[in-house]
Amino acid sequence: MEFLIGNFAELTITGLVLGSVYALVALGYTLVYGVLQLINFAHSEVFMWGTYAVVWVLTLLGASGTSSLAGAAGYLAIALVAAVLMSGGVALIVERFAYRRLVRQNAPKYIILISAIGASFVLSEIMGLRDKIAGFLGLQGVLGDYVNNPRNTSTLPVEIKPEPVLQIGNYMVRDTELLIIISALIMMFVLDQFIRRTSFGRQIRAVAQDPEAASLMGANSTNVVRLTFLIGGVMAGVAATLYMIKVGATGFNVGFVLGVKAFTAAVLGGIGNLRGALLGGLILGIAENYASGILGSEWRDVTAFVLLVLVLLVRPSGLLGESLGRARA
C-alpha cells in the first residue's frame, strides 16, 4: 500500500501505457460484436501479424542500431503504415473466410465462434511455421531471415531509447510512453467521430442497432461488416506499432494473452461500446499495475479477472453498457 502511494504516478502512467494498447485492440472486439453480436476470437492474431509487419518492414529498410524516438520517427511512420495494412488485410481475410458465408447463411453463433477460434489457431501457426510454409512454396531462400526460426522471439531491428520528457508527480514520463498514450487517445477520438459523424459510421451503427431496418434504408450489410473488420484491423495495426515501440519484441504467440486482456477490457467497458473499450482498457492496465505493486506481479492476471467479475456483478452489461447497439453510440 505504501508502495502504491509512493509510486502512484509511475504505476498509473505505465498502466495507462499498456492500457492504451489493450484499448486499441479491444476496439476490434467491440466493433465486430456490436455489428454481428459475435466475438472475433481471431482478432488477437490480427494484432500479432501487425507486430511482425513492423519488424519486417524495418528489417527490409535496413534499420539497425539504437535511436531516440524522434530519430526513428521516419522508420516508425513507415512501420505504422505497414502494420495498418497488414492488420487491416488480415482482418479482411478473417471476415472473408471465417465469417462471411456462415453469417450469410445464418449459421448458429457457436458455429461461427468455432470458426473464429480455428482462424485464430491457423493465423498463429502460419506465423509459427512460416519457414516450412516458405519451404513448400520454394521461397525459403528468398525470404531467409524473415522466415527463419519462426518460433523464436523476433526483435525490432532498431532499438528505441526512451527519453524522459515530462515530470508528473515524482515520475519522469518517457517520450515513448507519452507517444503511446496520446496516439491511442487520438485514434479513439478519430474513430469515435468517424462512427458518430460520417455516413459510413452511421451505417455501422444502423446495422448494429437493427440490421433489417438498415437493409431497408439501403445499407449493404456485407460492406458494413467488411468495413467493421477493417477498422478493427487498422486499430490493431496502430496498437501493434505502439506495442513494438514499447516492448520491442514479438513472437507468433504474443496475440493470445494480449487478446484475452483486450477482450476482457472490452467486456469490462461494455462490449459493443467504443468508449467502453477505451475506459475498460485503461482501467485494466492501471488495475493490473496497482495489484502487481501491492500483491506481487504474479497476481496481475488474477486481478484482471477478479475485477471483471466484480464489475459484471454490479453492472452486468459492463461499465458503459452495450452501446453501438441499443443506447447512444
Binding site: R202, R205, G218, L324
Partner: peptide
C-alpha cells in the same frame, strides 16, 4: 416503413432521417 416502426433507437431523429437518405 416496416411493421413495428424499427427506428434506430440509438440515433437522433435527424440521424434516422439521414439514414433514410443513405443512398
Amino acid at each position: 416503413s416496416p411493421e413495428g416502426r424499427r427506428c434506430f433507437p440509438g440515433m437522433t431523429v435527424m440521424e434516422n432521417l439521414e439514414m433514410g437518405a443513405l443512398l
